[in-house]
Each structure stands twice: as structure tokens, then as C-alpha cells.
Amino acid sequence: MPPQPWNDVVWEDPNGGSVIVHGTMPTVVYPNAMRPRATWHGLALLESPDVVDLWVQEELDEAESYGVNLTHALLSGGAFAKYVEGLSTLEDLQGGRFPDPEPRRLQRNADRHNRPVFFIEPLADDEDWGDYLTQEARAVSHWKKLLGMIRVGKRWKKSVKRHLFDAHPPPKGQSVDYSTAGVLAAAWWELSEWLSTPALAERRDARYASRIRGALASLRKTEGKEATLLLVVHRPHVSALVSALEANSNPEEISSTATDSTHMEEE
């Protein structure tokens, strides 16, 4: 997994339009300087539509008991718990926030400005996606993977140490804590991907790429060749997803989904 720069990647579709690939770190609030500044016409999230309901519920939970979602994450165990635990030691960034700040902020922004939102993850009744999920569940439940997760602490330390050597300096004007968070995010992603298989990850990304290109094709109907789709992904996933877009030649038709943001508006 190559280290990821902080600047967003722009992928040009041969059929017209472009995709701004905006890398985020889970639960980390991005300062204004790290937020997308280019003009975009639609938003793509590597989620299913029901994630908005989850975000709203997390907001309600936080309003009732601040920090409850972070506590649950820390108690859940596994690589994500190690990740948010590491973030909690960083004083010069806002981490461990729920719902996931950057995708939620951008979804609310799209909703407020009547921009279409495309949920890239297929629905559960999609036959091909259902088969993928079944195969992934089998991979994750393999005894070797289950045994490996028992020793997640040792595996986590090795992964963090490995990614430290590839760490990017923080964005200009930002705390070194963002560089540290980038290392933690890379380690979390590596362990998450380890639970599956390279073949399944490639299959997933190929399907994502088809649907991302389909979302851009939908935008071209109204915005023409200048259509710009903002795609939100985890930073460690950026390189693989851009490669999948480069390799894809079969856009999948996809429609935007209306979302409703009535809680805790943020610019």
C-alpha cells in the first residue's frame, strides 16, 4: 500500500467529466485547509443509502450522551478500536468524532445545495453484490483470520511501525498529528483488508469503479463534459480505487438518492 499524499486526486473520465477523489480519515474532523475547494456537481459515497439513518442516530446518541459512540468503538475491539484509541492521544486534531465528520458534512452540504448524492455500495438485493458479501464473510470467518484477530495487538504494532517509514509530512500549516493519524489510518485499513482476500478486494473495487463511472455519466446528462463528481473514500483506499477506475471500461447505470439532513447543520 503506497503512502497517500494529502492533495485530492483528480481522475479524468475518457467519456467526459472528472472524479475528485477526496481521501478522509475515519472520525477525524478536517480543518478548512484540508477540505475540497474545487467546484463539484454531485457527491459519491462508498456507502449504502441507509448510512444516513445511521448518522442521524449517532447524532441523536451524541446529543443524549456525548462520547457514547466513541466508547462503543473502543470497547468493540479489533483494529478500529486500536485506531480510535491512537487518535485519542493526539491533542492537535479532532478525532474520535461520530458520525464520521467529513462524509457527513459533505452529504449535508450536497443536501443543502440540492446536489445529487450517489451511494456507490449496491443494495442488499443485488445478486452479484450478495455473492461478494457471502464470499467475504467466508474469508473473514476462516480460522486463520479469527486466530489472527486474537493477536490483533501484536499485529497492530507491526503495521503501525511499518507505515511509520512511509508517513507523509502533515499538510502545509497543519499539526504533525495529522501525519500520525495518517499512519494509524493506514494500519487500520491494512488490517481490515487482511481479513478478506486480495481477489475479493479487487472484485469490490471493480464494482465500485463501475458504479462511480455510472454516477459521473448521470451527472453528464445535466452538466455535460464538465461534470465533476466528488468521491469520498478512506485515504489508504485512494490508490487502489483510482487504479480500478483506470482499468474500468463498463460504467454501471446508477441513480442519485434523495437524502434528508435535518440535524446539526454544518458548513
Rank of each mutant, 00 (worst) to 15 (best):
K161G: 06
E121V: 06
D126T: 00
F165W: 12
D126C: 01
R104I: 02
L123G: 13
L106A: 15
P170K: 09
G130A: 10
W129I: 05
Y83T: 06
K157P: 01
V68M: 05
S141D: 13
A124K: 14
W129Q: 03
G86Q: 04
L146F: 06
R115L: 13
L106G: 10
P169L: 07
V84G: 05
Q94K: 15
A167M: 13
T134P: 00
V140G: 03
E85M: 12
N69C: 03
T71W: 06
R151I: 01
N69M: 06
G86H: 02
V160H: 03
L70Y: 02
G173T: 13
T134W: 13
V84K: 12
A139N: 11
S159T: 08
H113C: 08
M149E: 00
H168E: 13
T71K: 12
G130R: 10
E136Q: 15
S159M: 04
K172G: 13
Q107Y: 11
P122M: 02
Q135N: 11
R112M: 09
A167P: 02
I120F: 06
G86P: 03
P116Q: 09
A110Q: 07
N114L: 12
W129C: 07
V140N: 02
R104C: 14
P169R: 09
A81E: 05
H113L: 15
R162S: 03
V68G: 01
S141F: 11
K145C: 03
V84N: 10
R112W: 08
R162L: 06
E102Q: 15
A139E: 09
F118D: 02
F98N: 08
E121I: 06
E102A: 14
P170S: 15
K144N: 04
E91N: 04
D131I: 14
K158I: 03
G77R: 02
E85Q: 15
Q94E: 14
D131E: 14
A110H: 04
L90G: 09
D92E: 15
F80Q: 07
L93K: 01
F119Q: 02
G95T: 11
L90C: 09
K144V: 03
P122R: 02
K145V: 04
E121W: 01
P101M: 06
V160L: 00
P169A: 12
L146E: 05
K144S: 12
P122L: 04
N69Y: 00
G96H: 05
R104W: 15
D125H: 10
P103N: 14
G96L: 05
E136I: 13
L75F: 08
F98I: 09
L133E: 13
L93P: 02
R115M: 11
A79I: 00
H72E: 11
F118L: 08
T71M: 07
F98E: 05
S88L: 06
D125L: 07
L106C: 15
I120W: 03
D111A: 15
Y132T: 06
D126I: 07
P171A: 09
K145F: 01
R162I: 02
F118V: 05
H72Y: 07
D166G: 06
Q94V: 14
A167F: 05
